[in-house]
Simulated scan of single mutants.
Amino acid sequence: MIELLHALPLLAKAAILGVVEGLTEFLPISSTGHLILASSLIGFTGEKANMFNVVIQTGAMFAVIWYYRKRIAETVAGIFSERRAQRFALNVLIAFIPAVVFGLAFGSWIKDALFRPVPVAIALIVGGFVILWVESRQRRGLAAVRIHDVDSMTAADALRLGLAQCFALIPGTSRSGATIIGGMLFGLSRRAATEFSFFLAIPTLVGAGVYDAWKYRDLLSAQDVPMFAVGLVFAFFSALACVHWLIRWVATHDFRGFAWYRIAFGLVVLATAATGSVDWTA
């Protein structure tokens, strides 16, 4: 089975990874972790593969822009005249800055040390238990909700979520999971934390994609254009479906199901790595 996956055409691998990216980017289950695991399974590894997995996140970002195009257009139109638009844009900028600082300081070391399946599996499991703990606090009424919509956030709230997002530099943690669960800990409603996570994804994913494309530009050639185009398109449409579904899901559900999925998936990876039934080093 593994041999068949490794033998897939390059564009088929790009499409698979695009779907994986789109479906997992905004769920608290770690898109980077799933991309590392999926890439290992289909034999798409190396520096160019790592860059591809980062760049196609831009496709997921465009899905958020399309879904929230009205709100984004209103913010851009009112950036110089409306206090609401100015405060919203400033909060997104404030939340984005910590990821830039920590990413530039530790990004290369983290990629060299942790961008492998087993560390991802461990992070998935740990993150799953963190989600269960936060949801338990919510059910017991230990985390009072102060903020019910993103327009009620202060600059301090934005900074806290930006710092929470930095944990997602560890592959397997989940960018959306870190911001959503962090937001719930800091007093945001589940819906407000989820929506702000979407908006924060725009500068974060664009910044990461542009930075990696520039950093590894010597690896690129004209022959790579179809591969990247396929990955971006599949990431866009799968992410658009995911965002549409998730924003409705959080109105009536919590994240415990995602937590148990993380734990189970992480244990499967560790078990198959320990027994040698799957070669996760490929």
Rank of each mutant, 00 (worst) to 15 (best):
V230W: 14
A192G: 10
K215D: 05
L188Y: 01
Q223Y: 10
D224G: 00
A193M: 00
Q138S: 11
L205H: 04
P171Q: 08
F167Y: 11
P226L: 00
A239E: 07
R190A: 00
T194L: 03
L232A: 13
M153G: 09
T154K: 06
F167M: 15
I180T: 02
R160S: 11
V145L: 06
A235M: 10
V206Y: 10
G207C: 12
R175V: 01
C166M: 04
E135W: 06
V145N: 10
L188Q: 07
V150S: 04
E195Y: 03
Y211G: 01
L220E: 14
F198K: 01
A241L: 15
H244G: 10
W133T: 12
S221G: 15
G207M: 06
V150C: 01
T154H: 08
G162K: 13
A156P: 01
A155L: 15
L142I: 12
T179N: 00
Q165H: 05
I147C: 12
G182H: 13
F199S: 00
A158F: 00
S136Y: 12
L240P: 08
G177C: 00
S238Q: 04
V243D: 05
S221L: 07
L142F: 12
F234A: 07
D149C: 11
T173A: 02
V134Y: 09
L169D: 01
D224Y: 06
A229I: 08
T194C: 08
D212E: 13
A213N: 02
V225N: 11
V150M: 00
H148F: 07
A213C: 02
L240H: 14
G187E: 10
S238W: 03
V206C: 11
E135P: 09
G182Y: 00
A201V: 00
K215P: 02
F198H: 05
D224L: 10
G231Q: 13
A213Y: 04
A222K: 09
C166V: 12
L205G: 00
R175E: 01
L169W: 10
R137N: 15
Q223T: 06
W245S: 03
R191V: 15
G141H: 01
G162D: 03
S152K: 05
G209Y: 03
L240M: 01
P226H: 12
